[in-house]
Structure formats: structure tokens, C-alpha cells
């Protein structure tokens, strides 16, 4: 059961990382990056590194997500026709 948990977590991490990099729309990439950060918190917890998991939860999931979302909004307000953001 431990092995299944680790394999599933690794697969989800790799897939969300790939989607984050491959997505053309920047808003989607930011949200997928938040998801990736949350999964990475679980990975650090699984690797018996609770202090790094704490840092990842605070910085990766909380602060970076909010800052990147705000940055996307500011970019979009400045340039309404941002590359690849129109459908």
C-alpha cells in the first residue's frame, strides 16, 4: 500500500508538472502550478521532511499562488490581448 501511494503521488506530480509547462494559457498554468505545489507538499511529507513540507505549504501553496494570480490579473489589465490567452 505504501508503494501504491508513492507511485500514484509521483505520477500525479509528473503529470501536473507537464501540464503546467505545456499549457499555452498563462492563467491555467498558474492554477496548475498551485495544484503542483500542493502535491509537492504531500511528496515532502512522504519523504519524512516535515519542515520542508511546512515551507512548501506556506510558500508554494499560499503566497506564490496568490502572488502569481495577482500578477496575471495585472498583466491582463495592462495588455488585454495577451498572447495565447484568447480562446
Amino acid at each position: 500500500m505504501n508503494l501504491a501511494f508513492d507511485l500514484l503521488l509521483a505520477a500525479a506530480l509528473l503529470w501536473s508538472a507537464w501540464r503546467t509547462l505545456a499549457t499555452p494559457q498563462i492563467g491555467r498554468a498558474v492554477i496548475l502550478f498551485i495544484v503542483f505545489g500542493l502535491l509537492l507538499t504531500l511528496a515532502w511529507a512522504r519523504l519524512d521532511a516535515p519542515d520542508i513540507a511546512l515551507a512548501e505549504a506556506a510558500i508554494g501553496a499560499g503566497l506564490t499562488g496568490a502572488l502569481l494570480l495577482d500578477a496575471v490579473a495585472a498583466l491582463r489589465a495592462r495588455r488585454p490581448n495577451m498572447d495565447g490567452d484568447e480562446t
Binding site: 511546512l54 499560499g62 503566497l63 491582463r76 484568447e86
Partner: peptide
């Protein structure tokens, strides 16, 4: 110590949701 991590996560995971609703969701783009 993972309980402390869970406490932090419960506190901070909502921040990005609030930031999304207040600042980032501008409408019909996507």
C-alpha cells in the same frame, strides 16, 4: 510534525482562492 504542516495548509490554501475571486477572475477571457 505533519499535523503542523496540515494546520498551515488549512490556513493558507484559502488565500489563493480569495486572491482568485477578488483579483484574478476578470470574466469572459477563458
Amino acid at each position: 510534525a505533519l499535523v503542523d504542516v496540515a494546520l498551515t495548509l488549512a490556513l493558507l490554501a484559502a488565500i489563493s482562492g480569495i486572491a482568485f475571486a477578488q483579483r484574478a477572475w476578470l470574466g469572459k477571457v477563458e
